[in-house]
Nucleic acid binder design. Structure first.
Lengths: 351, 351
DNA sequence: TTGTAAGCGTTATCAG
DNA sequence: CTGATAACGCTTACAA
């Protein structure tokens, strides 16, 4: 590819002039501008990004650090980030599947000089410390952080409140023996949802029972697997709260196979309100969290952080609401409540 | 952040030596190396990526250009790309939601100097031309291209064959009046699947009927919506082939609400074999395509293209198979056939 | 309005 | 084994 020097030579101008044409800012005569553009087009020239960012100290890209991404939740977060970044003419440099903090540090280091900021989801406390170090160089937005990090922006989901509301609702429906299908150990969302569950039970004078807490890993398969154990319980729970929709789907499927009716024999609820939840049989009562919005807001926070004007009034920590979406799987007449359509606009899938 | 010069000064060595320490290649005395490392750590130094790539002409990142990403298919493609890239120590610079070829060109241009290669899914023919231009600078891998592009690597999915096989299967089951739920106009996958459908019908002496072809846009909602029209047909089709699973899910849901039994009253099949398909009621007969693998293979093709040794024997165009996964929704006893579990290893979701 | 030249933070090519 | 120094391709004062 041609460089700025080639274009300057052919167009009969200095490299500074070519540069000016591409930066718009400075005044260049219309004729010169036209000539340069023409030559550049013919030579297939475009400014080299690396060189540019070396002098300007701006890269026009945003780093994104995530744990291993799977499922609609993550894909929607990325989609939100990507859309937000695109609107502001930024590209995203993604590195995911970070199991531990070391991997995260390595990845963030190798991004040095390539990004103007970072949006990261730190899986554990150790990585949070690593992030703190990075935050010195540019604004960092933490997604769903376990602890607040000084100097970092953050945006999270009301996991605790969402789970709490859900369980309160079940209790209000008359349920007392409510099982929970937990998420992976060490996962912040999963733990917060578990806390919400226990807290809601206690508030109603119900003692959380260990035998009603089942391990899961957020996959449909794990929900499917646990069904047997749940059905083998001495006293069948009247409701099961799965801490994400995928597990609820697996559970529903297994219950159906076992001839157990939902919600007549047992109520089932989930968390996340993924797109298909409303099309399940029965439609799934769940908690709505807008993953797309999470990503988009994260970008907005970051944009605020890099604009000088924005530095004065930044809300350091934002929380996205998690709202109850009642459908048939928990045993309430659907017509009595809104169906809870999804907010983020969706375009067709590609496969 | 400290620069190489700062470290050199404090460590009492030349910048060349510091550089050597970080590039491993050249011989540096153990003592010098230790000292440099120590000083660097204390000063929190890490080589600047932009500067590095300016001299080396290598960026260690891979551009990814996609249409608006939504749904499990795309998220799995990205996951595959990300994993593949990570293994080879590359990061991915993502830009999606490219409606037209102009947007695509703009995005790819702004990646100039920031990437060592490109993996792109071109929505239309116009953008394919744009890609051709880009391909001059570095290896480009096309995902599911509409036409072959000279000098570009490509990897695609056997959409036509998959759909063809599916419809042949339905016909073999005795179905003759088979409706199709089509995908978005202009979408390659959707069009290929439609071609496969028509071709299979004709091969069996069945004339494809326009009134049995229904528009859809790959979303559950569109599948749900079309159900009414399908049920309003004079002669009810005995089977409906939805060209992706999401639409099949919407359709199943609407049929259930209408009291139509699947597969007894009508058979329903999909395409993609997304994770939940096996947990639906009834479990969905569909076509398995491995989106994760598509992404991962694309990276592998690209890695081959950049390695000098690989340049000699590159398969220019790879096709991933699309295999039939028979479950209950098409009316065949499930026990008679394998259930078609998914291949790509999945880690828990984060929400 | 345009040109000259000094960086930006590295790596790479020489000498030593 | 180590050190000067010239690129890499661009932006940006400063001059003209």
């Amino acid at each position: 590819m041609a460089t700025i020097r080639d274009v300057a030579r052919v167009a009969g101008v200095s490299i500074a002039t070519v540069s000016r044409v591409y930066n718009g800012s400075a005044r260049v005569s219309d004729e010169t501008r036209r000539k340069v553009r023409a030559v550049a087009a013919k030579m297939d020239y475009w400014p080299n990004g690396a060189a540019r960012s070396l002098t300007t100290a701006r890269t026009h890209s945003l780093g994104v650090l995530l744990p291993d991404l799977y499922g609609e939740f993550f894909s929607e977060v990325i989609r939100g980030i990507d859309h937000g970044a695109r609107q502001a003419k930024y590209q995203i440099l993604v590195s995911s599947s970070h199991a531990d903090s070391d991997a995260l540090v390595v990845a963030s280091r190798s991004m040095h000089g390539r990004i103007d900021g970072l949006i990261a989801m730190a899986p554990d406390v150790a990585s949070t410390a690593a992030i703190k170090q990075i935050a010195r160089n540019f604004p960092v937005v933490l997604l769903n952080p376990r602890v607040e990090v000084e100097g970092c922006y953050a945006i999270s989901i009301a996991n605790f409140e969402g789970a709490h509301t859900m369980v309160r609702h079940l209790i209000a429906q008359g349920h007392e023996r409510i099982a929970i299908l937990k998420g992976p150990h060490g996962n912040v969302d999963a733990e917060e949802r578990l806390r919400g569950y226990r807290s809601a039970l206690r508030e109603s004078g119900i003692h959380p029972l260990p035998e009603l807490e089942f391990d899961g890993d957020f996959t449909e398969a794990s929900g499917h697997r646990r069904a047997k154990e749940i059905l083998a319980l001495e006293g069948l729970p009247t409701a099961v709260f799965a801490v994400n929709d995928y597990m609820a789907i697996g559970l529903l499927s297994a219950l159906r196979d076992a001839g157990v009716r939902v919600p007549e024999d047992i109520a089932v609820t989930g968390f996340d309100n993924i797109a298909i939840s409303q099309y399940l049989s029965p439609p799934l009562t769940t908690v709505q969290v807008d993953a797309y919005e999470l990503g988009q807001r994260a970008v907005q926070q970051w944009l605020l952080a890099i604009e000088p004007e924005g530095r004065s009034t930044p809300p350091r920590h934002e929380v996205l609401p998690a709202t109850l979406v009642i459908r048939r799987s928990c045993g309430v007449a659907r017509s009595a409540v809104p169906r809870g359509g999804r907010k983020s606009k969706r375009k067709p899938d590609g496969g």
